[in-house]
């Protein structure tokens, strides 16, 4: 693999509600001298919806992306920051190996449009790329800005840590905590770190979806966290954009920042704050401005 170069699969969310994730990911990778090269003409991963309608079509969507990756640069790993994208790509590979029938169908359908047959491309998540390819020591040695914000709750959600265990341990993941602690950011022990945010339930059955996120936000606060840190655009969106509605439904107003781990790491390693998408947060904006603004303490605390 060429050192520090990765193919990049943004997925649909990172071009819309999750745009701050893409901005901060790029800024962070730049600080770490890692290059992201976008996968040309990538298609939607199908998320959970395709699997609920047509399994063959769901696997095909990912197989096409994997084939494109192989064609574009077979020496590079494919980085997928969104949990849904990551899981569907990994699951397609796994099931194509375990079920020869699935693989045969995929090879057949792909060949019909003259793409290379499905082959092993290493699918990665940026958390694990930074943890494994850069390493805690290297990250620690590159700290530029000293953290002056509060304690954070690291929230891993579902599909990045389950059912595949390559990004972190499924039952008690710690890598995000370790990376943040390495750059001097205090984290809290957050027992609900892998409890699902409900995905699209906030939009389809709000009574249920909002309550799941209410539980996560309240528990983070109870553990002493002033903000939640996420690694998925859907988790961030649910926890950040619905706090208003959660407050109205529960009768308990909330205003807690929900950040991407790439924003916090990027800031600590000296990426320019204006490149981290911090202004795109909806909840906890005052706290975010105070924590991440310019270095002069006088300006930072007005």
């Amino acid at each position: 693999m060429p050192a520090g170069r990765y193919l990049y699969f943004p997925g649909c969310s990172l071009r819309a509600t999750g745009v701050a994730y893409e901005e901060s990911l790029r800024a962070l990778f730049e600080r770490l001298q890692l290059r992201l090269e976008e996968l040309a003409d990538w298609n939607c991963c199908g998320a959970t919806s395709y699997m609920a309608i047509d399994e063959g079509a769901a696997f095909l969507l990912s197989a096409r992306n994997l084939s494109l990756a192989r064609q574009q640069d077979e020496r590079c790993d494919l980085v997928a920051p969104c949990s849904a994208c990551y899981l569907v790509l990994r699951k397609t590979q796994d099931y194509a190996v375990r079920y020869p029938e699935i693989r045969r169908r995929l090879d057949q359908s792909l060949a019909s449009a003259s793409l290379t047959p499905l082959d092993s491309v290493k699918v990665r998540h940026p958390l694990e790329v930074i943890y494994n390819d850069v390493g805690l020591e290297e990250v620690r040695s590159r700290v530029v800005n000293r953290w002056r914000g509060g304690r954070l709750a690291c929230y891993y959600g579902c599909q990045v840590v389950r059912p595949y265990e390559e990004v972190d341990r499924p039952h008690n993941p710690r890598r995000m905590d370790e990376l943040l602690e390495a750059v001097g950011v205090p984290t809290v022990e957050f027992a609900l770190k892998t409890k699902c945010c409900g995905g699209s339930l906030t939009g389809t059955i709000p009574e249920v979806g909002l309550r799941l996120n209410y539980i996560l936000l309240k528990e983070a606060a109870r553990k002493g966290a002033e903000a939640i840190v996420t690694l998925c655009p859907l988790c961030q969106f649910n926890l950040d954009a619905y706090q208003d509605q959660i407050g109205r439904q529960s009768g308990e107003p909330l205003d807690m920042p929900v950040l991407y781990f790439t924003q916090v790491l990027g800031w600590a390693l000296g990426a320019p704050p204006e490149k981290l998408g911090l202004e795109r947060s909806i909840s906890g904006r005052d706290l975010i401005r105070r924590w991440f603004s310019v270095r002069s303490p006088r300006e930072a605390y007005v």
Partner: peptide
């Protein structure tokens, strides 16, 4: 906050994808 995109995204090689989906 610039997070609501009204763009209707599409890929370039759409016909190819459609053929593949039909074959699948």
């Amino acid at each position: 906050t610039g997070r609501l995109s009204l763009r209707r995204e599409r890929i370039d090689r759409l016909e190819q994808l459609r053929r593949e989906l039909a074959a699948a």
